[in-house]
């Protein structure tokens, strides 16, 4: 589904990504973790071309992201993405947030889009909030709307960029529950997150990054039981204490 081969990116002399190589199979759930500044958000943003990269290759569903001939907008419409800060459109109602790209990008009719939007809102438990505006919802609710908005495009895979980092602790679980359910339904997912409980529950594999490199890329059992690198062991020791 997603295949990365020696992806590198640098700003001037600063290396953000160094020869990152990995594969994500259909239906797999991959958790990407690592210290801040290790390049995990950048890596995930390269998958749908939001961040350009200088060398290497990323193939998503048979399409090369870095190829200048690729229609990136079209590719992105098939890859759902959820951001740390939700990024709902504040000038539109919740239901319009879910409909706008269905109408303008996929060319669905208003009824189709609304119907789909309402079903997805129900699914994330926010059916009653359709006519409200993003500013009227809590952070957890906004993030669930953001997930529903991405799902409305019928994506072939989903990218999550620290979806719970900006949330109050008590709202983390409502978002993780939606993501867990999605994973159990067989959605292909790549999640940048520090939620190791989530990783233990639903991940197939864990990727650990440090200084722009993929240091560990292993099954979750192998990663949590006996991480090979010292850096990953230190990282786990620090965050699993809490």
């Amino acid at each position: 589904m997603i295949s990365m081969n020696k992806v590198s990116k640098h700003y001037g002399t600063f290396q953000v990504l160094a020869e990152c190589t990995t594969q994500v199979q259909k239906g797999e759930v991959i958790v990407v973790c690592g210290p801040s500044g290790s390049g995990k958000s950048t890596l995930i943003k390269c998958v749908n071309g939001l961040e350009p990269f200088q060398s290497g290759e990323i193939i998503v569903n048979g399409i090369s992201v870095g190829d200048p001939r690729t229609n990136l907008s079209k590719l992105r419409s098939t890859v759902g993405m959820v951001f740390q800060n939700f990024e709902l459109f504040p000038h539109m109602s919740i239901i319009d947030n879910l409909c706008i790209a269905q109408l303008k990008v996929l060319g669905r009719t208003r009824e189709q889009a609304r119907d789909k939007g309402c079903r997805l809102l129900d699914r994330v438990g926010l059916g009653a909030q359709a006519e409200k505006y993003p500013g009227q919802l809590s952070g957890g609710q906004q993030q669930r709307v953001a997930i529903a908005r991405a799902l409305a495009m019928d994506p072939i895979c989903m990218l999550f960029d620290e979806p719970t980092s900006a949330l109050d602790p008590e709202m983390v679980n409502e978002v993780l529950d939606v993501m867990t359910e999605l994973a159990q339904e067989g959605m292909t997912m790549m999640c940048v997150t520090h939620e190791m409980g989530f990783a233990r529950r639903v991940a197939n594999r864990v990727i650990f990054m440090d200084q722009g490199r993929i240091v560990e890329d292993d099954s979750k059992e192998a990663f949590f039981e006996h991480a090979r690198s010292e850096r990953a062991q230190q990282f786990l020791a620090k965050i699993l204490h809490h």
Binding site: N48, L50, S73, K74, R76, S77, T78, V79, G80, M81, F83, N85, E87, L88, F89, I100, A101, K104, V105, L106, R149, A150, M153
Partner: peptide
């Protein structure tokens, strides 16, 4: 915020659509 453009792009909107909408 820059994230708005990113979110619109991630939904498959072109630059012009993201700007306008």
């Amino acid at each position: 915020p820059k994230g708005q453009m990113a979110a619109a792009s991630a939904l498959g909107m072109t630059y012009a659509q993201a700007m306008r909408l």
